[in-house]
Each structure stands twice: as C-alpha cells, then as structure tokens.
Nucleic acid binder design. Structure first.
Length: 470
RNA sequence: GUGAGCGUAGUGUAGUGGUUAGCACAAGAGUUUGUGGAACUCUUAGGGGGAGUUCGAAUCUCCUCGCUCACCCCA
C-alpha cells in the first residue's frame, strides 16, 4: 500500500471537483426532488437505487470503450479481491444492469424506472461541471414506439416547467441505428477525407477518432465545410426515418417547442435513433452583461410542421442563439444496450438531468427560495430545576407536533431571549424556579412584549390557541 | 490532458518589501444578581502549503495544493 500523502497541517478540503451540499442548497435539491418525484410517479415511473460502484466493465461495454467518459473520466479501482470496479459515471448502464439482473423482462411492458443520485466523472471542474454531481433520470424499457421518446422528453420538460423554467429549448435529432449509421459514417468519412486541409487542427483529429463530432466545432472554416457535409437525417434507413417523423409528430401534438439540430450527436455509444438535449435560454451570464446587450439572445423557432418530408435545416448557421452552453437534460433511445449487456434484446429510451446545473439556473432566476418553516415557539429556562422540566416539556410539544426552538445550553435569560428574538418566534415560554414550584409557566408574546402566567398543564392548549390566532 | 486568472479570520474585504496585518458583518461573553430587538465593551478567529531571494516577505521567484474560467467532453 502506498503511503497516504498530502497530509495537511491546517484542516482538510473537499477533493477537487467535489462539493458539500450545504443547508442553503439542500432546499434547492429538495425542491427538485419533490417536483421530480411528483411528476414522474404520475407517468408511472418507479424509483430505483443502484449502487454507486459497479463492475467497471459494465460501463466500458455499455457506454463504449472509446468514449471520453470511459476512456478518461472514469474512477476505476481494484478491490482487495482483485475486481475492477468503477464509480458510476452515469445512470443508464446501471439501470439496464438492474433490469436484466432482476428479470424485469418478464414484467408488463413498458417498465419505467427513475433514479436520483450522485455520479462521478474525473475531469477538470468548471462552470456546470463537477467530479461529483447529481442527476435524476428515467428509463423506459420494452417500448419501441417513438411515443415513449416523446413522453420522456415531455416528462423532463414538465419538470423544468414546474421549476419555473419558462424559456426552454428542446434540441432533437436522430442518429440512426445499426442499419444506417455505419453506412452514413463511411459516407461522412469519405467526404471529410478530401477536405481535411480546410479544417482546424482539432477537427482533423476529430475526423479520425470520432467523425460525427466535427459538427460540434464553432470555427468558421469548419462550419462552411460541414454545412455541405452529408447529414445523418438525409441518410436514415426507412425505419429510423419513420421513427423520427413520428417522434416529431408526437412532439407537435404535445405542443413541445423543439428545434431540430442535425449536428446534435451524443458522446455515449449506446444511443440509437432519437437523441435530445434540453437547454434553458434565459439570461445565463448576466455578469458579462456587455455581450448580452450586444448580442440579444435569439430563440430558435419551431420547424414548420415538423414533418421529415420537408428539408431539414437549422435556423441559423449552427450558431447557438442562446448563451447557455450546458445542457440541463440529455437523453435518447438505446435499443441495443440491453442486448449488449447480456439481456434480452429490449428497446428502451431515457434521459438524465444535471441537478447542479438546474440549481445554478434556478439561483440566477430566484436567488432566494422561501425560508423553510421556522419554529414559532421558543423555550427559555432558568435554573437547574426548570431546565429539567423544560426538557420534559419539550417532548410534550414534539408529541403535539408543535416545533419549538430551545437554547438549553444557555442559562442566562437575557441571552435566551436574544436568541429567541433572532429566530423570530411568535411566543417565548419562560420557565424559572418560581414557576416550577408554582406549577405555572410564562407565555410571552414577542411582538407586543406582553406576558401571561398560565398553569403548566394547560400550556400546550394555550400555545395552540395563540398560534391559531396569529 | 492543455491554457488563463485567483488564493488574507466563518463571510466580504484593506494593505504592492519593515504595520501589534486593518475594517465590516457574522459568532460568543458582558454592560450588577429573572426579560429580547438599540447602543457600548470585550473575546474568538487570518495571508492554502512548502522552498527560495532578502537583514526583513501577505507583498518578489519557484514548486505544490485548491478555487474559478476556457479548450476538450458532457448532465
């Protein structure tokens, strides 16, 4: 065993790219979770939790050995027993594994599952990207109809709507399947082969390793060449073409504003046919406001009719009209994955949302979420006898579901009232030596400052009465 | 993996080679013995870490760690 290095003299910090989710942020996480759970269960998804650690091979087989996620971003380690395990970099492969492992093929289709939890990718952290981050996602198994693709998009869309995202753009594309994509890839490669010189250095590299990726480039010269390049949607096999057309029709029917982006390619190998991403178009970087005022965000408009019969084109020369570059949500169909991972061939689709990214966008919109309910009653106590009684009384309140703040550690009444004031309670109860002996307690109204002595056994009733009035 | 900027109490900051390292907020204690919000007093707590230059470093150099941002890629 290697030595543990990097010992610090002064305290510890989270490792690179890892973050504590502090109480302030818990409220955002909780809100997202609640809305998600609420909506998703309406659509018939059931929650699943898979381990954070899986056999490394699950991901290399599932996501693809040559993908960046597996190749460079996976936390892989060997156990004492010699197994290679990995911190999960995404959710789909795990859910598929669970689906197969527990024989869910025999469940009535479609089988709909959702999850919410941490994921890990070893990469340089930056805006909207962390080494540990959280996602929620849904997967639907056993439905090959594009109606499921559309519903998945719809569910994400609804959740974001419910979270007050108003300007959302759904980008969609179809990247073909095992029938047509290999053929298209060849076509593209041969197109690129004779034009490599015109590309930027990065794209030349991309052309070799992952040709579809050249579409991501923003260089002007590359833009020009790729504008002429064959596009996957023009070379779909009939099945994919129809699937895509129907998918778009469903989106139209749902009145989901989408934008067809023929350049949308996703970095995971398992996708077939439908892929999509959802962006928020609202004022993302309003700190760098100069740019925003000079280049007011342009919104994509929905393609007319959405029919695949009309020529498919992008509204602006591949230029994104919105400032946010990070997708809030990404997903698609993966009809081959179940088989790849050793299960029955099962069509499936799903997607995942980045929670930190959503939180970031929420904060920009509404920097302050309403405060959680604070206690309305404070209990102050004086002297040992009273302190002992107070503890007991505190339990009485809990049984009656009245939340009470306390400061049992403090003995000074002044300090206790100060603390009580800071919490902003409505009533403060004061129990001292004298009151305990008399079997009474003081109720002090913090607004008016008036106080009243009541019988100790009636205190719950009295407090309830006062809280109700206010 | 590549590139840029940054790193002073819990938070926000001042200080560009010699200061007891200053200020604000927050936190805690108190201003005579059982009554809050104001004011005042006091306390806690600081230059990420390490080397070097120098008589002397928060300040200059290097390394390292971390943060932020971008490339890449993705949620």
């Amino acid at each position: 065993m290697e030595e543990y290095r990097g010992r610090r003299k002064k305290g510890y910090q989270t490792p690179t790219g890892m973050h504590d989710v502090l109480p302030q942020d818990q409220r955002y996480f909780q809100k997202i979770y609640n809305i998600c759970e609420n909506i998703v269960s309406f659509y018939g998804f059931q929650k699943i939790e898979t381990p954070i650690v899986e056999t490394a091979e699950l991901f290399s087989k599932g996501i693809g050995l040559a993908t960046d996620i597996v190749e460079k971003q996976m936390y892989v380690f060997r156990t004492k027993g010699g197994d290679w395990l990995a911190l999960r970099p995404e959710g789909t492969a795990s859910v598929v594994r669970a689906f197969i492992e527990h024989g869910m093929q025999s469940l009535p289709k479609p089988v709909k599952l959702w999850y919410f939890g941490p994921f890990f990718r070893y990469e340089h952290p930056q805006a909207g990207r962390f080494r540990q981050f959280h996602q929620f996602g849904f997967e639907a198994f056993g439905e090959k109809s594009p109606v499921m693709d559309a519903q998945i998009v719809q569910v994400f869309y609804n959740i974001l709507k419910e979270l007050r995202f108003d300007k959302l753009v759904v980008e969609v594309n179809n990247i073909g399947d095992s029938q047509c994509r290999p053929y298209y890839k060849k076509l593209l490669v041969s197109y690129l082969k004779y034009r490599l010189g015109g590309f930027c250095a990065v794209c030349r590299q991309r052309a070799k390793e992952n040709p579809l990726r050249i579409f991501d480039c923003k260089e002007e010269k590359c833009q020009r060449i790729k504008a002429q390049a064959p596009q996957i949607i023009d070379h779909l096999c009939e099945e994919c073409h129809n699937h895509f057309r129907e998918f778009l029709e469903f989106l139209d029917e749902l009145e989901l504003p989408y934008n067809l982006n023929p350049y949308l390619v996703r970095g995971l190998d398992y996708y077939t046919k439908t892929v999509f991403e959802i962006f928020s178009t609202s004022t993302e970087n309003f700190n760098s406001s100069q740019q925003d005022s000079e280049y007011p965000p342009k919104l994509y408009t929905k393609e007319d009719g959405g029919s695949a019969e009309t020529p498919l084109k992008l509204s602006e020369e591949g230029e994104k009209g919105y400032t946010s570059k990070d997708a809030l949500v990404g997903g698609g169909r993966y009809d081959n994955l179940c088989k790849i991972l050793g299960g029955e061939p099962t069509p499936a689709c799903g997607g995942a949302a980045g929670i930190e990214r959503i939180v970031k966008a929420m904060k920009q919109r509404t920097p302050k979420l309403p405060q959680p309910q604070l206690p309305k009653v404070f209990m102050a106590q004086l002297g040992n006898l009273a302190k002992r009684k107070s503890l007991k009384l505190f339990e009485e309140f809990r049984k009656n579901r009245i939340s009470v703040a306390d400061s049992f550690g403090r003995d000074d009444l002044k300090a206790q009232l100060k603390a009580s004031d800071r919490i902003g309670v409505q009533l403060t109860l004061i129990l001292g030596q004298k009151e305990v002996l008399e079997g009474t307690i003081i109720i002090k109204d913090m607004k008016t400052g008036r106080q009243e002595t009541v019988k100790l056994e009636k205190i719950i009733k009295e407090v309830k009465k006062r809280l109700k009035k206010a």
